[in-house]
């Protein structure tokens, strides 16, 4: 499982430099997991428990789907408007629909707490301090 050709640059993106280019896959995955755990927004256990306990699975599903659908709708809407104004039918719609998909996925990841909020004020500063940013 060794990849001696791997460049250190990709490891730097994972948040920390692994000096040995021959580090095996397991070790690199561990490093990536640590980096991701550091990047994820920290929530206190109390808030976590309250949301787990109170929100049913149904509520979580509605939340995620509304986030995702909203991203796509806004992307498609923007693309359509752009097409109307600039007369570039259908390219604006196509491009912005895909951007909308990306925004929807970003929304869902944020709602699930996998990616830090865009600006968490002072808290965001602390979370962002140890990584290269998102």
């Amino acid at each position: 499982m060794k990849k001696p050709t791997r460049t250190p640059a990709t490891d730097e993106q994972a948040g920390r430099v692994i000096s040995n280019p021959n580090a095996d896959l397991e070790q690199r995955r561990q490093a990536l997991e640590d980096a991701l755990a550091q990047r994820a927004p920290k929530r206190d256990a109390a808030e976590e428990g309250r949301q787990e306990g109170a929100g049913s699975g149904f509520g979580a599903a509605l939340k995620m789907s509304s986030e995702f659908v909203a991203g796509i709708l806004v992307g498609a809407g923007l693309g359509y408007l752009l097409d109307l104004l600039a007369g570039t039918t259908p390219w604006g719609l196509i491009v912005f629909l895909f951007l909308g998909f990306a925004a929807g996925v970003l929304n869902v990841l944020r709602a699930a707490g996998r990616v830090a909020q865009p600006a968490d004020g002072a808290r965001g500063e602390r979370l962002r301090g140890n990584g290269a940013g998102d």
Binding site: S66, E67, V69, A70, G71, L73, V74, G75, L78, F96, L99, G100, A102, A103, G104, L106, N107, R110, P118
Partner: peptide, 9 residues
């Protein structure tokens, strides 16, 4: 787009 989708979601 993510920001604009907030009022919708």
């Amino acid at each position: 787009i993510s920001f604009l989708s907030r009022p919708i979601s």
